[in-house]
């Protein structure tokens, strides 16, 4: 069982890499080095701040875009090319396929993020000339970004398990935007009355909470991240991804592959 999930995951990873997904790293490197050089010219004081802010934001956005655009095609492309038929005519269960695809995509993003992280630290070294202790919090911010990716991957898979790639992309991206304002959304919900308050609160807890996973600006200001927050955010991201993944499995398990 686990063997097949590993095989599906590694095949997904291999396809993504050969499909030149990692080429985005070139764009990322250009953006970051351009910014590092430019910022150095403009102002001395905030160059580090800008490099961290811009670098981490770019890591997050690049990854989200990749996660959505690969994620939405993972299932539909395999149906379109009928490769899924040959996979499922083997002793592979449908849930194994979904879980394998998830890990393959997550692995792709993890490797991608690893290279981007190196880029961020290189740019930081270029502007600040040396590292010091608070820079370690950048690693926490990067870790939170990876947690975001896990949620987005699972959501993209969930949507692609029942809707067209274009709609899936729209759904996943809107959830990302809404989720980035999740705390404000719960604020809005708290201001409503009666039934709409219940509905709004329910919806506010249903959307993924990306705002708590975004500590970029606080890290850029060298503020530490609380230990328990790291713990709870990890648990939250994992359970939320599990929810989306279970949804994808449930839908896919009963779907006619026309």
């Amino acid at each position: 069982m686990s063997g097949r999930i590993v095989h599906i995951a590694s095949n997904t990873f291999r396809e993504a890499v050969r499909d030149r997904v990692l080429y985005n790293l070139i764009a990322f490197a250009l953006l970051l080095s351009g910014a590092a050089i430019l910022v150095g010219e403009i102002s001395i004081d905030i160059e580090k701040l800008v490099v961290i802010n811009l670098g981490l934001t770019a890591v997050s956005l690049f990854g989200i875009v990749i996660a959505i655009f690969i994620g939405i095609g993972l299932v539909s492309k395999e149906i379109e090319r009928r490769t899924l038929y040959t996979v499922l005519s083997r002793p592979v269960r449908r849930w194994e396929f979904i879980v394998g695809k998830f890990f393959g995509l997550a692995g792709t993003l993890l490797v991608n993020t690893f290279f981007m992280a190196i880029g961020v630290f290189a740019a930081l070294l270029y502007v600040a000339h040396r590292f010091h202790m608070p820079d370690a919090w950048i690693l926490v911010a990067l870790y939170f970004i990876v947690l975001q990716f896990l949620i987005i991957c699972a959501l993209a898979l969930l949507f692609s398990s029942f809707s067209s790639p274009l709609l899936s992309a729209v759904f996943a991206f809107s959830l990302f935007v809404i989720g980035s304002f999740a705390e404000d959304l719960r604020g809005f919900a708290g201001m409503a009355h009666g039934l709409s308050r219940w509905l709004a609160t329910g919806a506010a807890y249903l959307v993924p909470n990306f705002s708590a996973l975004n500590v970029i600006s606080s890290v850029a200001h060298e503020r530490p991240v609380a230990g328990p927050l790291i713990l709870y955010n990890t648990a939250y991201a994992l359970t939320y991804a599990a929810v989306a993944l279970c949804g994808a499995v449930l839908i896919f398990e009963h779907r006619d592959l026309k």
Binding site: A212, P228, L229, Y232, Y236, T239, V243, C246, G247
Partner: peptide
Amino acid sequence: LVGCMLASVVLLRRVDQM
């Protein structure tokens, strides 16, 4: 699905409190 959904809401409340 149900278990993780409940857990995620509880965790989210903890995160909010923090």
